[in-house]
Design a protein around this nucleic acid. Sequence first.
DNA 1: GCATAAAAATGAACGATGTTCAAGATGTAA
DNA 2: TTACATCTTGAACATCGTTCATTTTTATGC
Lengths: 208, 208
Amino acid sequence: MTEKRREKKADLKARLITAGTALVAEQGLKGLRARDIAERAGSALGGLYTVFDDLDGLVLHINSGTLKRLETALNAALPPSGDIEETFLSLSLAYLRFALAERNLWSALFEHRMPEGVAVPEWHLAEHAFLIGLIAPPLARQMPDASADDIAIRARTVFSAVHGVIAISLEGRFVGITPALLEREVAALARLLATGLQKEPPSRPLVS
Amino acid sequence: MTEKRREKKADLKARLITAGTALVAEQGLKGLRARDIAERAGSALGGLYTVFDDLDGLVLHINSGTLKRLETALNAALPPSGDIEETFLSLSLAYLRFALAERNLWSALFEHRMPEGVAVPEWHLAEHAFLIGLIAPPLARQMPDASADDIAIRARTVFSAVHGVIAISLEGRFVGITPALLEREVAALARLLATGLQKEPPSRPLVS
DNA sequence: GCATAAAAATGAACGATGTTCAAGATGTAA
DNA sequence: TTACATCTTGAACATCGTTCATTTTTATGC
């Protein structure tokens, strides 16, 4: 029965992620402390480092859980029709509501930085792919001549634009904006993106 | 001559900001250390705390300088015509180039967070206003019935959308994208925003 | 069951960090 | 020059992430 060891380790890992998630939700990523996590998870300080290489490893797993919940929320918001305008609008507003509901955890997705020179592991990068997967299909219908790569890039642009509006707003860097107005802006942008972003003619020269 | 004291203090402050700016440019905001700053500025460690309350105060001033350079760069990119499409396109590409040229300093603008519960000081929030001021005038011409507040909000949406595309790309969270393709996406978005974001009819209901 | 070896959990200790403050250095004014 | 006020300094402190010798727990052989 070497299985008991596996179970204990898996249990500790789960408890650490749960504790870390709760702490990020309460105090934000900046307030996350190894000692607090260990205490909350009912383990010794060193226990954390038997499961993860360092705090960044734990944060990656916290963010992984947040991404899974985001995926669930966005999938639930997908309209059955597949109409691009309806889809973008519904996804954008669902994204906004998720960001508001899980503010600190959502922020942690984008605030977290690996140490200088250390890359985000491949398995975690791949977890972001579903976002493109949600946006690309209706977009592809509207860009019949575009390659799959171009559609993926354009889908990323669509996501990034909506994300930018929400992120800048919730960061509170500019003048504040009411939730209702933020919804209005997100909706307006989503509608515009749904109808306007045809494939750019590659030959059209840019302003230098 | 109590002036000599003022000068020395102002000189120290300038040296600290210069040193901090250089260090952020070289190693990013995460790599910024009080001891490194003091050493490079030729002051004792404690000197930093005679000028600033804490490191956040210094970062605010570093970011302030970055914003001023950004303002200069964007003003230089303003086309004489005042045409909205030309303006948005030119501003967006200038913003992208600034972000690429001063990557770490530009990142610091948005990465930096005040400690839990501490607000960004008013004087620094106000320094972001020029961005709205650049975008609002051509937008106002296209939204003759909109209030000044609505135009400011819409201008912020325009900035945020372009910023989002650039930020997500430079964060490298999704699959990488070449600089040329990023320019293409930014240009496509800028053009779309220039022509498409009319004032939203306030009565139009949103999808629930 | 018991003894023994292997593995894992523990928390004191380490190095690095931001910040403070008593002591010394420097500037101001008579 | 002297006496006072002010500023500068860097050792000391508190707190952080991380390590690792020690202790405890688990697995194995008889």
